[in-house]
Write a protein that binds this DNA or RNA. Structure first.
Lengths: 136, 136
DNA sequence: ATAACACTTCAAGTAAGCTTGAAGTAAAGA
DNA sequence: TCTTTACTTCAAGCTTACTTGAAGTGTTAT
């Protein structure tokens, strides 16, 4: 069975070892085995759990709700409604976030074009280009 | 000239009045005029500034960098490089965020389908549907 | 006029999510 | 063997972004 040290996990997921310990303290990660000298030994089950955690976390779900999700998952039939409510709500939330992101991206891109226009005008010593307005 | 009370601004942008005062303290909002009894009078310039702030903030730019941006904007020719670096960096950042969001959305949607499958199996009293695997 | 409510300042408090430091143990290389 | 390096725990500290509370002033409704 494949195992991983805390350092390997840290590199693989690009998060500090301290954060891995913190998540374990919170109960977000399932119990981690130890070597005789108390060093953590992670397995593929931690890999997949951490992947799940980061998928939720990176889309803005608070750690407390991520915790809820994995607690519900211990007894799926007993928590069907909570689980489905959590994931479908979060699905809608992500869709909304993407929409807003795209709209905001358009605004930022407008600014990029605007300032590039000014920069070009300054460099070529020409007059202020009046064909575009301030964006902020 | 159109003016707005703090309450109107609060409703319009759906942020508490205390946050508007806080942004003003930080210098994120340009100086706000007052009535004889010291109540804030916002104008369209605050509307557009706040729109800009929220566009940055909602895409994850920290308030400190938003502050930088608006300080740079006071003297655009003197800060061309900083401004362009800030906005283009942030543009790339948002694009990356959207990409990751979409990928994470796909994962969450997989979970939604997975748990809906289980729910259906439970409700119809049928056996566990083996055609789909755990997703977390 | 008097109560209720909205606004003001300013300092202190809160919440989330880590991060750091001290003090100790253990393995690995010169 | 000695030193460097990596890990350990646990509590305390930090950062960001607000939020709340106290104490006071002003405005509005009955």
């Amino acid at each position: 069975m494949q195992t991983y040290t805390i350092k390997e996990m840290s590199k693989r997921f690009n998060i500090p070892a301290s954060t891995l310990r913190y998540y374990e303290d919170l109960g977000l990660l399932p119990p981690v085995e130890r070597t005789s000298s108390d060093q953590r030994i992670y397995t593929d089950c931690h890999i997949s759990r951490l992947t799940g955690i980061l998928c939720f976390k990176n889309t803005g779900l608070p750690l407390a709700q991520i915790q809820d999700f994995f607690r519900y998952e211990e007894d799926i039939p007993g928590h069907m409604d909570e689980i489905l409510s959590l994931v479908t709500t979060h699905e809608q939330d992500i869709k909304q976030q993407i929409k807003e992101m795209k709209s905001n991206l358009a605004h930022i891109q407008h600014k990029v074009r605007y300032y590039n226009g000014i920069k070009h005008a300054i460099e070529t010593g020409r007059e202020w280009p009046c064909w575009e307005e301030s964006s902020s």
